[in-house]
Write a protein that binds this DNA or RNA. Structure first.
Lengths: 209, 209, 209, 209
DNA sequence: CATGAATGAGCCTTCATTCAT
DNA sequence: GATGAATGAAGGCTCATTCAT
């Protein structure tokens, strides 16, 4: 059985030498550039090796194929993609402000990594293993938001008739889809406008004071 | 220059004979089945002709390639995909009920055509011409909703501090993305739950009443 | 699971047109020439298509790979390889003469098809499916000889203390191995000398008379 | 011109240090295991170095390629392969018993080294230099038997109408081919049965008293 | 109109071999 | 002596596209 992409366990063992590690890193960076430029489907291994100024043989020293290196790109990009992660209740900050701040942080991160996000969506649409990976990550993100909403409800600050999980899921979907429309599909709109409208809807939806 | 897919104008002229029309229709139906089954990227022309029980030569009598027939599939499917189109203000019906009804209609239509919708997303992620087409359609849909929101605001039934266009865009994004998560990515949830939460958020967001 | 070579059932369906059948036949003949010239291991598909004056694409129209066409070569060559099949008791012919005649027939057939026989041995040494095929055919041949020996024993014409099956197996092995040494490994010796010695040993071994 | 494999003269000069000799020996043993496990054709140099727990660079310190190390394996294995070498007339022992004993010794040795024998046959079928080597060794073996038969004929103990060389060749072929069928091709039969039948045929063929 | 054989560019993948460290 | 990263020629296979029948 083919191992599922996205699983770090299946990567080839890391290079033994410093030089090897450098070459591998060069390949991953080159692959990210190529994937972002040409898309996953339209890129060839030779494009990646040309970008990395190495031979195709070298590629196979470190990766077993295109999905292997794509997984590596994803892993490598994780720290970068790590946006604030949604509203966090810090001290007694105004919930509305928390929402605004985290939406802004998310949208800015999305904008910075727009090509990568487009890539993830594309691959999720093609390879079901990556689709599962994508869904799993979205869930983790939504869960955090759901727990935060629940706390607000407990403290009487948010409408209690909303299912926290469904609400978090719907509102998170809204934000990510707006980001996708704007920076992937190219429906150009100022980041501030997007931030304001989604924040407003979050606030209204939860009926914050 | 390669003609843009999705543009009906560039399709080959329609078959002159009845038999030709039938063969062409058979091909389009076969293509839809194959695309929905295997995805756009993973399907080959020979899969389509095999499904249509005709030769590859016949395919080229009617279409110039894979994106040509995909355009034809999309055109052919439009009537089918045509959901009610969002809230419509009919007479003096309760706005909340209109929202609920049109969300339900949309979600049910999405569920019925889930494989096709997945396909459209996939192709939009691969071919920028289809991405443009996809965006354009979403816009038409959003515009209708925006006008409807505007009318509610004019009549004092909805919060007036929301930009009707941005609000319509955000709320429509939310609904379509929830549908995508549920029936394409496989995050199984009852259609009624989805309908309720998105309806609730629409209502709250607009501060109906 | 990979289908076993030598199994006619797994071949691609025969070409629908006369032209196709001709091309396929050309390929099989070309493949036989190439295999006999370069051996199975050292021949490449492009050698075969060059010899057949067609493209590599055409090859894949009719065969799935090298072992596929090798199976076809074997099938095609069967009639040719079909030697008399060992001693046949016809009427009241002298058993010694029957042995001599069938050994001569076998050795001459081997000599004519020496390159093909070498090929079969080579492939049997590499691919265990072909090894099984080879063993099976040898068995069929040996079985016939065993039955014939048994009849001689029943009629009191051959030594009765020999196990007919083992004797047939050993004596057949001797003949085929001598042929192999002579025409495959190149231990040049006149066919008549080989015929005489193996016939003599058959006769002595069975203690005819 | 490529030097002929099998020729000990062309091997790289032996390692100068003790450590070098050990490394080389480890490689040869590893190569034998790998060749016997995967066959000559299907084994790669990296398999051998992995088995020997050394690097590919080290391999090239001692050998020039696959056939080089195969030659070394053969040389290394000679002592091991050395079976009694066929009938030997010792004192006034009963010739029939000598035949039986040496056939048994040969067959047992073959059984013990079956994988190696299979390997030799395989390589002889692929590389003509090894084919020549193989034939040469068989000849040396056959020659000994021929001389022994000649002595029996001189002493009036064996049929004098048989050409001793051809007879030795045919009978030796029979024994080795039976061994091949049994332990290489997998036509399972008890070693005792094989010993008995080939011995019986030797005896009958030579018309020993 | 329908057919399907023929094509070959293009891509993936393997692995023997070299060489700087 | 030992290492293993780097190389790229070589070969396998796919599939969109053409065209003679």
């Amino acid at each position: 059985m083919k191992p599922s992409p996205g699983d770090p366990a299946k990567l080839k063992e890391p290079p033994a030498t410093v030089r090897g590690a450098r070459t591998r890193a060069t390949l991953v960076q080159a692959a990210r550039r190529v994937f972002e430029r040409d898309g996953y489907v339209n890129s060839r291994l030779t494009d990646i090796t040309a970008e990395a100024h190495c031979s195709i043989g070298t590629f196979y020293t470190y990766f077993d194929g295109k999905d292997e290196i794509f997984t590596a790109v994803l892993l490598d990009a994780q720290a970068d993609m790590m946006h604030p992660g949604g509203p966090r209740l810090e001290g007694d900050a105004d919930p509305a402000e928390i929402i605004r701040a985290s939406n802004r942080a998310y949208l800015q991160a999305y904008q910075r990594n727009a090509r990568l996000m487009a890539l993830m969506e594309q691959v999720a649409g093609i390879d079901e293993n990556f689709a599962a990976l994508r869904l799993e990550r979205a869930k983790a993100f939504t869960d955090r938001n759901a727990r935060w909403i629940e706390k607000l409800q407990d403290r009487g600050l948010a409408a209690s008739d909303l299912d926290p999980h469904l609400a978090a899921s719907a509102l998170s979907s809204m934000v990510s889809r707006m980001a996708y429309n704007t920076w992937v599909l190219g429906d150009e709109r100022p980041v501030d406008d997007i931030t304001e409208i989604v924040t407003q809807i979050w606030i209204n939806a939860l009926r914050l004071e």
